[in-house]
Design a protein around this nucleic acid. Structure first.
Length: 561
RNA sequence: UGGCCCAUGGUGUAAUUGGCAACACUCCGGUUUUUGGUACCGUCAUUCAAGGUUCGAGUCCUUGUGGGCCAACCA
């Protein structure tokens, strides 16, 4: 186990430099700041791994802070779901905070700004203000209300807070610079009137602070040392710093905002609006559909927290635009599941196999290892009998020597069982093989130690005894989108790329001890992939989701020919 | 017609801050294997372009080229 020191990413370099410059290590503090307006997705997952990972690396506290400044969109339900998802990913926050905890402080500071002549109440319509704002290449012009007296501003702002005005009639604006090349510095809005109940403060407030006014000050209140956000907030940094300057006390930690590139996963979408559309239009079964990029979807799909964390770790973080191939994620899922998932025999496309020289009615319980990667996983007994199911794909009447499976006249090993030889097969009217007849070598039983049992035969098949088989619904998923970046086409809607075959439901046949499987349990169906028990499972119907397939080099060989 | 950010293999990230381009995945080839899985071995880039500084440039400078972001009473 060589604990090779991982190279630092640029955000860690920033911290290291601050430390070198004398920033006290004990003062390091981070935060994950979701808005509780929807479910967390893979993008949030990497942000969570980043921020909480920093906490672990520097042994520093990480706050979970809900950025709940817009009661029109936010709900308690989402707060609960977010907390569950963060915990499921394996992280624990130092303190649970809410921007709404700071409404009073924020208000007091706003009053201070008004008194210093740095904020004013604007009484125009949003259209009028938008017009005055200018464009990225043209300076804006000042609002006619920009030079109201401090007394009038104070009176108006108090009135806004007291509920004397309707929505849209007044806003509080910071008085900065209408000619700034940064649009965000052109007198940004700090407060708006919103007569809506808030999920935590109820109707205590009818004015709510905007993101820019809230975020940096919240970081400051919590004494967050490094506030990392995505690149689209880069332009906000100037404002973040300006607001901080208004209240900053030298004796305290001054939060530092830095930006990183959002990590985009191929073949998926992540925006709330788009995910909602998939749900509303019935393309998927819900927010936790196993094809969704939500954390709850990935959980239901059978992705493990470890695999998601390893994924976030290995893809790293930088500032350039990226499109990460899902295969990187899938690799991590396989890598982890390979180590922990019990192996099991499961036939997905059954073909009847009859061992003609095996006694009718005879049943043997053969021993099978639960996980070759983990000896402590032990073994189990699997019933073997005269009539079995094998995969249709595993039999061909004739095939070339690259086909390491069952063909007429040739031998193959039934995993944990015997070596068999295909003798003949039956077909239906269309010529499809309906049954294979074979003979077995009674001395070749797996694990018996006999000379015959040690014979090398080129193929090994999984199987299940028909009489003992448990049938189960198997849901097989493919990518939800056929395009690697479905929502980046200017001329096409992402819905055009929905993969019509992203879900196939079949009936599979499993070894009987799976009757005890519980929701969420994951197994490797040998040679087929990883499957987990879906919550739709009932006492009389077992349902499995295919999490991810095994690496399939046979598929590649076939493709080439 | 402005400002800010970015550019390293098929993908994503590194490079002791100016000193032999590394890691993971993928791909391809091979070894092992009672999972065509796993494990293991090997092949695959002179760093967007052109100049410049330097003994030495992925790293610094200049100019291009390409891409992203910025005008919600959203976050």
């Amino acid at each position: 186990m060589s604990e090779e020191a991982r190279s630092l990413n640029f955000l860690e370099h920033i911290i290291e430099e601050d430390l070198r410059n004398g920033f006290p290590k004990e003062a390091l503090r981070f935060r994950f700041p979701p808005e509780p307006n929807g479910y967390l997705h893979i993008g949030h997952a990497s942000s969570i791994c980043l921020n909480f990972g920093l906490g672990l690396r520097y042994n520093a506290p990480v706050n979970l802070r809900f950025d709940d400044t817009n009661p029109a969109k936010e709900e308690q339900e989402f707060v609960d779901a977010i907390k569950e998802d963060v915990r499921w990913l394996g992280f624990d926050w130092d303190t649970e905070r809410y921007a709404s905890d700071y409404f009073q402080q924020l208000f007091d500071w706003a009053v201070l700004l008004i008194k210093e002549g740095k904020a004013y109440v604007d009484s125009q319509t949003s259209e009028e203000m938008a017009e005055q704002k200018g464009t990225p290449t043209e300076a804006g012009v000042e609002s006619p209300f920009r030079h109201r007296s401090i007394e009038e501003n104070l009176k108006l702002f108090e009135g806004m807070k007291a509920g004397e005005y309707d929505e849209g009639t007044h806003v509080l604006r910071a008085k900065i610079d209408m000619t700034s090349s940064n649009m965000l510095m052109r007198d940004p809005i700090m407060y708006r009137v919103l007569h809506k109940a808030h999920h935590r403060t109820n109707t205590d407030w009818c004015i709510y602070p905007m993101y820019d006014w809230t975020h940096g000050e919240s970081d400051y209140i919590e004494q967050v040392s490094h506030s990392y956000c995505t690149l689209e907030f880069a332009m906000h940094r100037e404002l973040y710093d300006w607001f901080l300057d208004q209240v900053y006390d030298e004796a305290k930690v001054r939060p530092k905002q830095r930006e990183f590139a959002r990590r985009n996963l191929s073949h998926t979408v992540v925006s709330k609006r788009k995910l909602a559309k998939l749900v509303e239009q019935g393309v998927v079964g819900g927010w936790d559909d196993p094809r969704m990029s939500t954390i709850s979807g990935m959980r239901r799909r059978g992705y493990t927290p470890e695999s998601i964390r390893n994924f976030a770790d290995t893809i790293g973080i930088a500032k350039r635009d990226n499109l990460i191939d899902v295969s990187l994620l899938e690799f991590q899922v396989r890598d982890h599941l390979n180590k922990v998932a019990p192996r099991v025999h499961g036939v997905l496309n059954p073909l009847k196999l009859v061992i003609t020289n095996y006694l009718k009615g005879e049943v043997e319980w053969v021993e099978a290892e639960n996980n070759p990667e983990d000896e402590s996983a032990g073994t189990r007994q699997v019933p073997f009998s005269r009539e079995l199911y094998i995969e249709q794909e595993d039999f061909r009447e004739e095939a070339n020597k690259k086909f390491f499976r069952l063909k007429l006249g040739k031998e193959v090993r039934l995993k944990n069982g015997y070596i068999i030889k295909a003798e003949s097969c039956s077909k239906d009217a269309e010529g499809n093989v309906t049954e294979v007849q074979c003979t077995y070598d009674p001395k070749s039983k797996s694990g018996s130690g006999s000379e015959e049992s040690l014979r090398k035969v080129k193929g090994t098949l999984h199987w299940v005894s028909i009489a003992h088989a448990l049938s189960a619904e198997i849901r097989i998923y493919d990518r939800l989108f056929t395009d690697e970046s479905p929502d980046t086409h200017k001329d096409k809607d992402f819905m055009e790329f929905v993969n019509p075959d992203s879900l196939k439901t079949i009936t599979g046949y499993l070894e009987p001890h799976l009757a005890n499987a519980k929701v969420g349990d994951t197994f490797q169906f040998q040679r087929m992939g990883y499957f987990c028990v879906d919550p739709d499972t009932t006492s009389d119907k077992l349902i499995f989701n295919k999490t991810v397939g095994l690496r399939d080099s046979w598929a590649k060989i076939q493709q080439k020919t």
